[in-house]
């Protein structure tokens, strides 16, 4: 147990992981991408990454552990409000607030998941549905804490070792780094024995239990970690938009996030980025009215679910395999 993990990674290190390269390459591209894009374009890119983090967490819950959470937006709200309140009212540093947001949402996830998963797994969907509504009520009604419908404004952006991150580009680069760190963490988790257990309980919970895998504990952990990613996303979201009110954390937003997971491809590492691209960036670029785009997006997801439940990533994988078979046959 005392040997460092690096020494024992003989088996996985045989080939350099394509996903790892993809993540780092993506981060480099995104670091430079907004040059010449203007404030708004940069903001949209940052928003995309922040939402991707939230979707990533939900992807762990849904795509890897096979559980439906209808409260990811509520968890983002918890993180965003915790960060906003801590930094504006109590002068806590953003970094501490970020960590606390993750911790808080992780703990709430455990608390919610424990009773729900004790019974039947689809109860988690209903419990999170109820929780979502409850959080919404608290955010709207507890004016003394959350500012009610007026929200909290003047949320400061953090600085990075003395470098102020007030500008759109500086903050975007900060978001890129945080997103990279969180995706690497998730990548590491998915390849760990825990990740293997998550996959096992999604594919065949009965068999998993017969191999000593405590399905309840692992499901709970996947959900709590996924929720914590919602908290992290919220903690980044608050300083990005600098003003928060309850509306982006409603139940419909949670449903929307879930659809992004499915659209991007549940269970794929890069699925959340694709999903958030389709759900957040595309409507901004196409200048689509919110409600109409939502209809189109939901309809596309519906169609995807019928044709290819693995989402866009699944489609790409299918296409890629077909292409490889063709070129392989030609050789």
């Amino acid at each position: 147990m005392s040997a460092p993990a690096a020494q024992n990674s003989a088996a996985p290190a045989r080939r350099i992981d394509a996903a790892l390269i993809g993540l780092i390459l993506g981060a480099i591209i995104l670091w430079f991408a907004p040059v010449g894009m203007g404030r708004y374009g940069t903001y949209v890119l940052s928003l995309w990454l922040v939402m991707s983090i939230g979707v990533m967490g939900l992807n762990l819950t849904l795509g890897y552990a096979g559980q439906t959470s209808l409260a990811q937006a509520a968890f983002m709200g918890l993180g965003a409000y915790a960060t906003a309140i801590l930094t504006t009212k109590y002068g806590v540093s953003w970094y501490a607030a970020f960590a606390l947001s993750g911790l808080l949402t992780f703990a709430v996830g455990l608390l919610l998941g424990f009773p729900a998963l004790r019974v039947r797994t689809h109860y988690l969907a209903f419990v999170t549905l109820a929780f979502s509504t409850l959080i919404w009520l608290v955010l709207r009604n507890e004016q003394w804490l959350t500012g009610g419908v007026f929200g909290i404004s003047n949320i400061n952006r953090p600085d990075f070792f003395g470098i102020k991150l007030f500008g759109a580009l500086e903050f975007h680069r900060f978001v890129v780094v945080v997103t990279l760190i969180l995706s690497l963490k998730l990548w590491w988790l998915i390849r760990s024995p825990w990740g293997r257990a998550f996959t096992a309980l999604r594919e065949n919970p009965v068999r998993a239990a017969s191999l000593g895998i405590d399905t309840r504990a692992y499901t709970l952990l996947a959900f709590a970690i996924g929720s914590a990613y919602g908290g992290f996303a919220g903690a980044l979201y608050a300083p990005l938009v600098e003003f928060i009110d309850p509306s982006p954390f409603s139940l419909s937003q949670s449903l929307f996030l879930l659809l992004m997971v499915v659209a991007g491809g549940a269970g794929y590492l890069f699925g959340p980025f694709v999903g958030a691209l389709l759900g957040v960036v595309l409507p901004e670029w196409l200048r689509f009215a919110g409600s109409l785009y939502l209809i189109i997006f939901a309809a596309i997801v519906l169609a995807l679910l019928v044709i290819c439940p693995q989402g866009v990533s699944g489609l790409i994988e299918r296409g890629w395999n077909a292409l490889r078979r063709k070129t392989g046959g030609a050789r």
């Binding site: 147990m1 005392s2 040997a3 460092p4 993990a5 020494q7 024992n8 990674s9 088996a11 996985p12 988790l189 760990s192 024995p193 825990w194 504990a217």
Partner: peptide, 13 residues
């Protein structure tokens, strides 16, 4: 090992 050991300890020892 333990649950946490599996995550942070030597992998698949």
């Amino acid at each position: 090992g333990s649950m946490l050991g599996r995550l942070f300890g030597a992998r698949d020892a």
